[in-house]
Design a protein around this nucleic acid. Structure first.
Lengths: 340, 340
DNA sequence: AATATGAACGCAAACGCTTGCGCAGGGGAG
DNA sequence: CTCCCCTGCGCAAGCGTTTGCGTTCATATT
């Protein structure tokens, strides 16, 4: 039926062990024999059975990637980038699309990845319970969004610094009523919304501006949520002259809401986002750029290093650079609107 | 070290075979024994080794998904949707991100999925050589974008019909100089750009409008490409009053180019896209909507059915509905621009 | 009461690979 | 010339499941 290692061995006139060593580049087989085995294997179209191989060796040459929604731009881009690094290193990628709390729960209690992957990359930090489950697997772990966890390599950005420069940009332009479209930390336990929000509060305090709860609304990090949240702010008694959206998606929703209200951007309201979404440039959105694909690649490299030097390489933390990208959605407040 | 089936067997006072049957719901084990085994297994935190299991059974409970770029909205959304269907059915998903021709070549000659997956879902049709390689795996196959192939289930849309209604919409509005942003079929061998282009030609002919090569430009289905292509059209001697972009991404690029040229949409130029990208609504783009997640789910279901009824269920073809979504980027041509 | 029947379970042989170990044989050092 | 070591290769024992078949025992059948 399907060609096995013994078929190759027989055809090449050697033992199965020699075929195994030859094909995997192990020492202990002479060059001519190796060449001949490779030729025979190619001719027969032989591919080692992954199951048998990993059963015998204990290694799976597979990496698990856990992500809440591959469909979302940020996560999709990260998965894309990390997959390329993994596959270039000869690893396959098992994708676990874990959005809802129920799916996550089931995954982390049953742990179907046990004995199935050599390492795990989690986009979005798992909560402490989930993290403990993963640690029990005793394999290299890395996390990309949402903060540090014991036993995990982590790559990310300085959310506080990013949000600080975003809000400060608005302050520097002269805005004094600055709104924020935020997101909840629950149920996914990430620190991003917390830190970005804290930065907003800190900058306001620094600038001597009062914090007005009516200027903050939850947009759930999505386009529709951003639109709803912006609409809320516009309905309030004291409209903001500028808005900091914690994500570009929310910023886009906000732009839509503003257009619906026939408000000009940036003349009537300035908008700044966060992430530098691939379409931010198309829309002309001012935002804080972070290397998205870069984080995926970096995390993948960290994991590969840990796999290469077992025990030796400890989990590491990497912080990627961010920067303000000025486009067309921010400007000084219109003097006509300015409060006295 | 790691708990195996014999550990469970010993702890439960039964044989390994009984444990195996009990945990997989096979007949031949009494209810009380089954319950006890389940309890012991849960307590010990036992998970069957996927490698051992598939080595012994020949089934991997894994499905391969081949995609050119998970990072792109369309593909990411499809992968997302199909993964949910697969994992709900107890299958894991191996992701192969095959963008460049070299990566594809390597993949299809070495076929690392051999003996590794029970079925394959390919986004973007493989060329005939690639298709032949996959057929040699002798497992259920499905393809989502780009046309039919022997031995594959295929789900898709009627590209010709969709493009027809798009272009006809422009014609009905009164446009007579209609441009097109297209894409090459190579090197990915998909039929989409061909059919959408043919529809454009057909509608023009139907409406008695001449085909002007200067009104067509290649945008490579990307935002930047669309911007370049639109810029080309604007540089031509006879500018179009409306443009059909074969994808929303290109349409977005076109919008950007038009804004750069200080042209109003839809007053000066109408733009219609194709796909109904998640941000099309934000931008107000008129477009042809197709069920993207729906196609992923449907293809997944087709594969699962083939897996459930081995031999019985033949590959099937499914065509998903499409419809014109009117938004704000199309309007009748400005009379001042109209040719006599 | 003897036999047939079937359910519940154990035995053991795969599944296809990896790897420690042993064994030749050849070449260099003494 | 002998001894030793090193290289190149084969042997065989796993790795942890699944599954066909055989055994046991209780129940139904005559």
């Amino acid at each position: 039926m399907t060609v096995s290692i013994t078929d190759v061995a027989r055809a090449a006139g050697v033992s199965a062990s020699t075929v195994s060593r030859a094909l995997r580049g192990r020492p202990g087989v002479s060059d001519p024999v190796r060449a001949q085995i490779e030729a025979v294997a190619a001719e027969l179209g032989y591919t080692a059975s992954q199951s048998a191989s990993s059963l015998a060796s204990g290694r799976t040459r597979t990496i698990g990637v856990i992500v809440p929604y591959v469909g979302r731009w940020f996560f999709g881009t990260v998965v894309d980038a990390s997959e390329r690094v993994f596959s270039a290193a000869g690893y396959d990628v098992l994708l676990y699309n874990l959005g809802s709390p129920e799916t996550r729960k089931r995954f982390f209690t049953r742990l179907p990845v046990r004995k199935r992957v050599d390492a795990l990359l989690s986009l979005l930090i798992p909560d402490e319970e989930e993290a403990a489950a993963l640690r029990s697997l005793d394999i290299p772990l890395a996390v990309i969004v949402g903060g540090a966890r014991d036993g995990f390599s982590v790559v990310g950005i300085d959310d506080h610094a990013g949000a600080t420069s975003a809000v400060r940009h608005l302050v520097n332009l002269g805005h004094r009523r600055i709104g924020m479209l935020s997101g909840a930390s629950e149920p996914l336990h990430w620190t991003t919304p917390i830190e970005r929000r804290q930065a907003y509060l800190d900058v306001l305090a620094d600038a001597g501006l009062p914090y007005d709860p009516a200027l903050e609304a939850d947009g759930g990090y999505s386009v529709e949520g951003g639109e709803r949240a912006m609409t809320e702010l516009l309905a309030g008694r004291s409209r903001p002259t500028a808005v900091f959206a914690q994500s570009d998606e929310m910023a886009m929703g906000a732009l839509r809401a503003l257009r619906r209200h026939r408000l000009k951007v940036p003349d009537d309201v300035s908008v700044i986002g966060f992430d530098d979404h691939e379409l931010a440039e198309v829309i002309g959105l001012t935002t804080i750029a972070q290397p998205v694909a870069g984080q995926g690649e970096e995390a993948a490299r960290l994991l590969l290093r840990q796999l290469d030097e077992p025990g030796a390489a400890p989990p590491r933390q990497v912080q990627m650079p961010i920067h303000l990208v000025l486009r067309e959605t921010t400007a000084p407040p219109d003097p006509r609107h300015r409060s006295p």
